[in-house]
Amino acid sequence: MYDLLIEPLQAEFMQRSLLTAVLVGIVCATVGCYLMVQRLALLGDAISHSVLPGLVIAYIIGIDIFLGAFIAGVFSTIVIAWIHTQSQIKEDAAMGIVFSAFFALGITLMTVVQKENKIDLNHFLFGNILSVTQSEVINTLVITLIVLVVIVLLFKELMLYTFDPVGAQAAGLPTNLLNFGLMVLIALTIVASLKSVGVILVLAMLITPGATAYLLVYRLHMMMIVGAAFGVISSITGMYLSFHFNLPSGPAIVLVAFSFFLLAFLFSPTQGLLTQSLAKTE
């Protein structure tokens, strides 16, 4: 048992991968709680898919792919807001339109680049945390710290806006700025997670740990703490399973996170499906 735990830590690439996985587990769960409470899971999906063309364009012109992804993610939120405010299209429909168009553009660009350069860019889609570099670990750490510091500093304002946007506006808070700031935090979180789980699976890490915590606790700050704990445990466990059983790391992390959600869904003391059934029969 001891060897199973220590053996992966002997390799430098696993040390970097585990550190990145822990950071991603924390930041995704923390930001994802806002998406859970506001019922905006589709927004996370929209932004995560929308970063793909930014990634590929950044690769083509030779700049940092993190920067390209972030710009594309923020730009997609601006386009969503523009369509929603300038037409009768509902926000969820605008999200679906934008993320599908951006994702299609990203896939097209990937296909063109791979034909011309004979390289594999599929790690953008599914992640490849085992190949994370020292500079990418630092980038993920910096992004995680920025996101967490902003959330701590603006916790009360974001909480009021999240639960009562009308009340927040009446209280004089800049709700439009808070909304845009939250979108930027989501985009940053997705960028930080790209190397770990990729564009397609990042939504799972944004939503699943927070949803698990949502079934267990009620207060937002406790949701963030419990969700982050599930995110970290899922990330570490998934990495160990990936190492010992030669599994793809991103999907392994997501499946572990889903397993925790399933346990909470069935056995949560207050909201569990089985515990509620047992309580009714007693």
Rank of each mutant, 00 (worst) to 15 (best):
T270A: 14
F267D: 07
F13H: 12
T85Y: 08
V24Y: 11
L241Q: 00
K156T: 13
G231P: 01
I138N: 04
Q276F: 07
F258G: 11
V31P: 00
D120K: 12
L42W: 01
L23C: 14
L182T: 10
V202P: 01
L9V: 03
S193H: 10
L220W: 03
L35E: 04
L19I: 15
A69I: 11
M159K: 14
F180K: 08
L154G: 00
A58G: 08
A41W: 10
N246P: 03
I200K: 10
F66A: 15
T281F: 12
V226F: 09
V137F: 04
G44C: 02
T20P: 05
G25C: 07
E91K: 00
Q134N: 14
V226A: 08
M159G: 00
T275R: 10
E7Y: 11
Y161D: 02
H221F: 13
Q271T: 12
F66V: 09
I26L: 12
I143P: 09
K90Q: 04
A21P: 10
S196D: 00
Q134V: 12
S242E: 06
L5G: 06
T20H: 11
V191P: 10
L105V: 15
L160D: 06
P174N: 13
H244Y: 08
T175Y: 00
L203G: 00
L185M: 15
D3K: 13
T212P: 03
L109C: 06
A229P: 00
N128A: 15
L67Y: 13
S76T: 03
A101W: 01
N139W: 08
P251Y: 11
I97W: 01
M183D: 05
S76C: 03
V254A: 14
L121N: 05
A257H: 08
L121A: 07
L247P: 06
L52W: 12
H244Q: 09
L263R: 02
I107S: 04
G272D: 11
H123T: 12
Y59S: 11
S234P: 08
P165T: 07
F258T: 14
T281V: 15
F243I: 10
L263P: 02
A21G: 15
T270G: 01
I80N: 02
Q114H: 07
V142A: 15
M159S: 14
F180Q: 06
A104P: 05
L201V: 08
F163E: 01
Q86F: 06
S50K: 07
M110T: 09
F245P: 00
L182M: 15
